[in-house]
């Protein structure tokens, strides 16, 4: 049986708006369970809106000019000497260079150690009856293929709006989220980057409140806003 549970419309949804003002370059609703990708130009800001609340957005970032340089969990953690992402965190590449910076964040902390779900790891985590649940790895592979990327290009990712505490003895895992409808995170591109987001389909743990909902992605160009103001 294919599990396709999701909520596409609800009166509690909050689509919010961009965290950083500027000309809107892109505005897209990522449907529940689906993937999205786009090149985000240096200097522009991507706002991701948690429309339904506690909806994980699994995210990979690549240098647009050379995708062998890509988001790196270890380099990001080492650079800030902390396991959690907050406002000001710089998202680093595997070459130790900045890709994006968190310039706005409306939840207590963002996760980057929980990894992405896959059909394969679902069998380990929840039993073989979950083998055919759709998963982030599927979305990453399909979106990546549009840019010439494959399994070799999948690395540890960011999980926007997901909550993964680490206890003193090393116990870690996914627990109830700290987000809510309309909460946002904003990322400034430090160079031209390819951003891939999987709107997580997982329904076997609380990462999506057991109810996948939409994400909204808005890219704004603050410099375009400034120049328009100047003209007036």
């Amino acid at each position: 049986m294919t599990v396709t549970w999701a909520t596409y419309e609800a009166d509690y949804f909050d689509y919010s708006g961009p965290m950083v003002p500027g000309a809107v370059v892109l505005d897209h609703e990522i449907a529940p369970r689906s993937g999205w990708s786009a090149v985000v130009s240096a200097g522009t800001v991507l706002t991701l809106v948690d429309v339904g609340g506690n909806q994980s957005g699994d995210c990979l970032i690549y240098a647009a000019a050379d995708t062998t340089e890509r988001y790196s969990v270890p380099d990001t953690l080492v650079a800030q000497r902390n396991a959690y992402l907050v406002e000001g965190s710089v998202l680093m590449s595997n070459e130790g260079r900045p890709l994006m910076t968190i310039v706005g964040n409306e939840v207590e902390r963002q996760d980057t150690i929980g990894g992405a779900c896959s059909k394969e790891s679902n069998t380990l985590r929840y039993g073989h009856h979950t083998r055919f649940h759709h998963a982030c790895r599927e979305n990453f592979l399909l979106e990546g293929a549009r840019h010439g990327l494959g399994a070799r290009d999948l690395v540890s990712n960011i999980n926007w709006f997901m909550n993964v505490p680490v206890e003193a003895d090393g116990t870690l895992g996914i627990v109830d989220g700290m987000s809510a409808p309309g909460k946002r995170v904003a990322l400034r591109a430090e160079r031209d980057v390819l951003v891939v987001i999987s709107n997580c389909p997982q329904v076997n743990n609380p990462c999506n409140d057991f109810n996948p909902t939409p994400l909204r992605v808005i890219v704004t160009d603050p410099s375009a806003s400034v120049s328009e103001t100047d003209r007036r």
């Binding site: 969990v73 150690i113 929980g114 990894g115 992405a116 896959s118 790891s121 380990l124 985590r125 494959g150 399994a151 070799r152 540890s156 990712n157 680490v166 003895d169 090393g170 116990t171 870690l172 895992g173 996914i174």
Partner: peptide, 18 residues
């Protein structure tokens, strides 16, 4: 070789970072 170490799964699946 496309199948390789996945540290997030290595920590998440056993519920243990260390």
């Amino acid at each position: 070789h496309g199948e390789r170490l996945n540290l997030a799964d290595t920590q998440k699946v056993p519920w243990q970072a260390y």
